[in-house]
Measured scan of single mutants.
Amino acid sequence: MTYKLILNGKTLKGETTTEAVDAATAEKIFKQYANDNGVDGEWTYDDATKTFTVTE
């Protein structure tokens, strides 16, 4: 399945997608991606749209 991440960081904003077997796997990938890019904030997930959002 395709999952989407919306980044609302102070210095980085944008979107990315990943292919993952489930939401938990996608979350791990996205949290590593956000960490690698210096984004740390409040996480939400919308199962209907398979979208994670992180807001600093």
Rank of each mutant, 00 (worst) to 15 (best):
T18I: 12
T51M: 05
D22T: 06
L7S: 04
Y45F: 08
D40H: 10
G38Q: 08
W43L: 03
T11V: 15
L12I: 13
G38A: 08
G41N: 02
V39W: 10
T53L: 08
W43D: 00
F30M: 03
L7D: 01
A23D: 07
G14L: 14
V21E: 08
D36W: 06
Y33D: 02
E19L: 13
Y45N: 01
D36F: 08
L5H: 00
G41E: 01
A24E: 10
L7K: 02
K31R: 11
G41Q: 02
T55P: 01
T11K: 09
D22G: 04
D46R: 03
Q32P: 02
T11Q: 15
A23L: 09
L12D: 10
A23I: 14
G9M: 12
E15N: 04
I29E: 10
F52D: 00
E56Q: 12
K13A: 14
K28L: 11
T49W: 05
A26T: 01
K28G: 13
D46W: 04
K28F: 14
T11S: 11
I29Y: 14
G14A: 15
N37I: 05
T25D: 07
T18V: 12
D40M: 12
V39S: 03
N37Y: 13
V39M: 10
T16V: 14
V54N: 02
Q32G: 07
T18Y: 08
T2P: 08
D46Y: 04
T53F: 06
K13H: 05
G9Y: 11
A48I: 11
T18S: 08
D36V: 13
N8D: 13
K13Y: 15
W43G: 00
T49S: 10
E27Y: 15
T17W: 15
K13Q: 12
T44P: 00
Y3R: 00
T2Q: 15
I29H: 12
K31Y: 08
T18L: 10
K50A: 13
Y3V: 01
I6Q: 07
T25H: 13
K50F: 06
T11E: 15
L7Y: 15
E19F: 09
K31L: 07
T16D: 04
E27N: 10
W43H: 01
E15D: 08
N37E: 14
E56H: 06
A23V: 10
K13M: 10
V54G: 01
K4Q: 07
T44I: 08
K50T: 04
T51P: 00
T51K: 03
Q32S: 07
I29L: 12
V21S: 12
I6K: 06
D22Q: 04
A34D: 01
K10G: 11
G14D: 15
V39K: 02
Y45S: 01
T11P: 04
T18G: 04
I29F: 10
W43P: 01
Y33K: 03
K4P: 00
G41F: 03
E56I: 05
F30I: 01
F52W: 10
A26H: 00
V39H: 04
K31N: 05
F52E: 00
K10R: 09
N35P: 02
T17D: 08
N8A: 14
E42Y: 12
W43F: 05
E42H: 10
E27M: 13
D22F: 03
N8V: 11
T25M: 12
Y45K: 01
A23R: 14
L5I: 04
E15Y: 09
F52T: 01
A34K: 01
T44V: 11
V21G: 12
T17A: 07
N8I: 15
E42D: 13
T2L: 09
A26F: 01
Q32T: 09
Y33T: 04
T44A: 11
G38I: 04
T2F: 15
E42F: 11
N37D: 03
G41P: 01
F52H: 02
L7W: 10
K4G: 04
D46V: 06
Y45D: 00
T53M: 08
T55Y: 05
K13V: 12
I29K: 11
G38E: 09
T49Y: 06
E42M: 11
I6H: 05
F30S: 00
I6R: 05
F52A: 00
V21K: 14
D40A: 15
K13P: 05
E15V: 06
Y45M: 02
Y3W: 06
D47T: 11
I29S: 06
T51N: 02
A24H: 07
D22K: 04
I29A: 08
T49Q: 06
N37Q: 12
K31I: 13
E56W: 15
W43K: 00
L12R: 03
M1S: 13
T16M: 12
N8E: 08
T49N: 08
A20V: 06
K4V: 14
A23M: 15
T49A: 14
D40V: 14
K28Q: 12
G38M: 12
V21T: 14
T51R: 04
Y33A: 03
G14W: 15
T44R: 09
T11L: 10
T55L: 07
A26P: 00
N35E: 09
L12Q: 06
K10L: 14
T55M: 08
K31Q: 13
A48Q: 14
T53N: 05
K28R: 08
Y45W: 06
T18M: 11
F30W: 02
T53G: 03
L12T: 09
L5E: 00
E19M: 07
T17Y: 15
D47H: 06
V21N: 09
V54E: 01
K4Y: 07
N37M: 12
D40E: 15
F52P: 00
Q32K: 09
Y3K: 00
N35L: 13
V21I: 15
T17P: 02
Q32E: 10
Q32V: 10
G9R: 04
W43E: 00
